[in-house]
């Protein structure tokens, strides 16, 4: 038995491995319901976090040669990020449960020691009412931090705040 290697911050210079094309998960020709996920990343006091990495993973639709299921985007000077992907469908939960459509999100950046893990759900999805993770959040304001809202045609907005009054619900992964 060994012990997993420790995290260290991704730091301010991860753009050396950034390929802006990776923000578009449809770039290899995937077809389906194309959506744009936008948002603003902030720290305490609503201060934007530029130069950070917002990376996503979704197990639906299934990854394939044309759909990597994974993408990442740099936040701009105002902390804004933008990713293009396919709208996920429901996926199985534990036991006999179903999970509402969602996208997994890691926040990485300077001043973030490990990764901050959260999820984006979609406003108006009927399965949100019975999703096992959302069901753990009694406070509507806390729950709302995980639910992307329609922000134009096929565009969804999820703002992410790492600390403070509007702090996003982060998940122990």
């Amino acid at each position: 038995m060994s012990i997993a290697t420790a995290f260290q911050t991704i730091g301010p210079y991860w753009h050396l491995i950034e390929d802006p094309a990776m923000a578009d998960l449809t770039r290899f020709g995937a077809e389906g319901e194309v959506i744009t996920l936008i948002g603003t990343l902030t720290e305490n006091g609503g201060v934007p976090l530029p130069g950070s990495c917002v990376e996503i993973w979704q197990s639906s639709p299934p990854a394939s040669e044309v759909f990597p299921g994974y993408g990442r985007a740099n936040t701009d000077e105002q902390g804004n990020f933008r990713l293009v992907t396919l709208k996920p469908g429901p996926v199985p939960g534990r036991g006999n449960t179903q999970q509402a459509p969602h996208i997994a999100i890691n926040i990485l950046g300077r001043g973030i020691v490990t990764r901050l893990y959260t999820r984006a759900y979609f406003e108006g999805e009927p399965l949100n009412a019975t999703d096992p993770l959302l069901a753990m959040l009694d406070d509507p304001a806390r729950r709302a931090t995980l639910i992307a809202k329609a922000a134009g045609p096929n565009t969804w907005r999820l703002d992410i705040c790492t600390q403070g009054d509007n702090e996003t619900v982060f998940i122990d992964i």
Partner: peptide
């Protein structure tokens, strides 16, 4: 100013 102040959600 960046680390979450609330406990992580156990899931």
């Amino acid at each position: 100013q960046r680390h979450p102040l609330r406990p992580l959600l156990a899931f």
